[in-house]
Nucleic acid binder design. Structure first.
Lengths: 225, 225
DNA sequence: CCTACTTTGTGCGTCGGTTCACAAAGGGAT
DNA sequence: ATCCCTTTGTGAACCGACGCACAAAGTAGG
């Protein structure tokens, strides 16, 4: 009982998954401007990728396009959202309410994509109890209780580097299997737990590398200043 | 027709460049703990990569290890820093002093890697003139002047999405060729300008995709144990 | 000096991802 | 209905990255 048209089991490449949110963002913009259908060429342009790549990416979800016409914007938004799991509501906890944690709590981009900041947690008694972005900051001692009570399934780590691994261990022990880590440390987690890391200074260092190349050119003789 | 191959191939793969900051971070930690030499195995563990990959990455910079011994920590720190261009001082301007811009201005990870936040710029008269992280927020009208006066070579965009492209155009026109973009838009820039983007909600969406799979997505195909 | 041991540097098979190019599929006009 | 035009979906070549496995190169000890 094999369906030739169904190849959406396990087989979506990581590189494709990483681009789906990009397409989704471009599609949302088009939906707002009341664009009904879009060609792979135009969508690729809006998302900043090659059109062949876009078509191949979308083909992994199924055949949602119409040859000679393009893709229906609304329908594609729905299909990608469903594939990414954005049709459900995700409760996110932010641990570490420093400058970054605060910025994240106030960041509008989360809410608009099916993510709900359900809890803020910190260790500093100075900030525990504060109201930030309409949420009460809770104490780190309550971490496990908060996760269970609020049904948190994704944790954002915005703690100092030194505290990240310990907090990570605790949230994993509490059943969380998806972590977004802003602390500049390599977290070690058991099999089955997903960690994605964002390191702001790493991005700058990569830019610096290329900038240095550009500035120096083939002859790197201007370094004495 | 193939390009004549350079004797010294200065072309370091992008994947390698992206990992060098990771190695550097691990090495700094070791230097602080007074570790003099380190094997590829240990360093790879600390950086969270495969040891063969690490050795191959380092071999692109030169033969800085000693067989049977390992790598000299201090020396390797210097070599990687130099390769990344971190031995010089980079002046960074942050445009957009909202929650995120504020967090970035206060983020310690920049300064410790050779980056100096040299200017803060915003359009809101409410925040222009404020002191944040020891810096005076300047008005967007002064953008070009500030870039020139402070020798800014890297710009961090933390503006609303709607303003990002216009600011981008202006900083590019002012001679900046390296941009770190936090705004959720695809920037279009001329050839020769590097843009790296960080989109917080994209990372969450990727996590949600995998989380959905784990939880039992379209098919309840949960592995036993 | 010679032997035993450690660790680097890399050749090579493999794999995933990107891109090209085109046949297949649909719409619209006549 | 038939022809022409547009655009998708994909086979296949290409390209870079990954990781195994091993020879080369070094240390240490007798």
């Amino acid at each position: 009982m094999k369906r030739p048209s169904q190849h959406r089991d396990r087989g979506i490449p990581d590189a494709t998954v990483a681009r789906l949110p990009l397409y989704l963002r471009a599609l949302h913009g088009m939906a707002e401007r009341a664009i009904a259908t879009v060609s792979s060429e135009d969508l690729a342009l809006a998302a900043g990728v090659n059109s062949a790549k876009l078509r191949k990416d979308l083909s992994h979800l199924g055949s949602y396009g119409t040859r000679g016409v393009g893709y229906d914007v609304e329908y594609l938004v729905y299909q990608i959202s469903r594939e990414l799991g954005l049709t459900q509501d995700w409760a996110v906890a932010i641990v570490g309410v420093g400058n970054l944690g605060r910025a994240l709590a106030n960041y509008g981009g989360f809410v608009s994509r099916g993510f709900r900041v359900a809890a803020l947690v910190d260790a500093d008694p100075e900030v525990v109890g504060d109201d930030i972005a309409g949420l009460n900051v809770e104490h780190i001692d309550e971490l496990e209780a908060v996760i269970k009570r609020r049904g948190v399934s994704i944790v954002v780590l915005a703690t100092p580097a030194a505290a990240a691994q310990e907090v990570c261990d605790r949230v994993v022990a509490a059943g969380v299997t998806s972590i977004l880590n802003f602390a500049p440390v390599v977290l070690s987690v058991p099999e089955g737990v997903d960690v994605r890391k964002v390191d702001l200074s790493i991005e700058l260092q990569i830019l610096a590398f290329h900038e240095q190349r550009k500035a120096g050119g083939p002859l790197m003789a201007v370094d004495s200043q």
